[in-house]
């Protein structure tokens, strides 16, 4: 039994300690916004934040989670989207959409540290997040747009 704080709420997960956080979220808590793509930190679909840092949740054992977890569900909700999520909608980024939770969480971590990223900084931050639909041009536009809006906010 592991105790976690996820999106500001305390949760208990009844799974073995070595089970990765990804599966604790998905299978233990039915929080399915965080996706499984590769299981080996090669695609970024499972990206969440631990204490604000973007991490691949497929590589963090439940017993090793060192801080508060934020998932896509905690970034914003359909009724109250984060600026970044709204930018994703405005730019119609998603095609199949499967990788986008991870893309958004990675981008959110970038903007938290680098409020006005250059194209090169976006490249560097987002290189680990795969999208097989090739939505990269719109991801880039959405990040720039959200950065502007968050500066203005």
């Amino acid at each position: 039994m592991a105790n976690l704080t996820i999106n500001g709420t305390a949760h208990s997960v009844d799974l073995p300690d070595e089970v990765p956080l990804l599966w604790a979220l998905r299978d233990g808590l039915n929080m399915t916004g965080t996706k499984y793509g590769c299981g080996v930190a090669a695609c970024g679909a499972c990206t969440v934040h631990i204490d604000g840092e973007a991490v691949r949740s497929c590589q963090v054992a439940l017993g090793d989670v060192w801080g508060e977890v934020t998932t896509i569900e905690g970034l914003g909700t359909p009724e109250d989207m984060a600026i970044l999520q709204q930018a994703w909608v405005d730019h119609q980024v998603a095609q199949c959409g499967y990788c986008q939770s991870g893309q958004i969480m990675q981008a959110a971590a970038l903007l938290a540290v680098t409020p006005e990223p250059t194209d090169e900084e976006i490249d560097e931050a987002m290189a680990g997040n795969l999208c097989r639909c090739g939505t990269y041009p719109r991801i880039r536009s959405a990040i720039h747009d959200a950065a502007k809006q968050m500066q203005g906010a």
């Binding site: 399915t32 916004g33 965080t34 998932t71 896509i72 569900e73 970034l75 914003g76 909700t77 359909p78 989207m81 999520q85 709204q86 994703w88 909608v89 119609q92 980024v93 998603a94 959409g97 986008q100 939770s101 958004i104």
Partner: peptide, 13 residues
């Protein structure tokens, strides 16, 4: 506007 954008941006799809 694509109907699937909001669900896919919020992890609810």
């Amino acid at each position: 506007p694509r109907e699937d954008q909001m669900p896919k941006a919020t992890g609810t799809a």
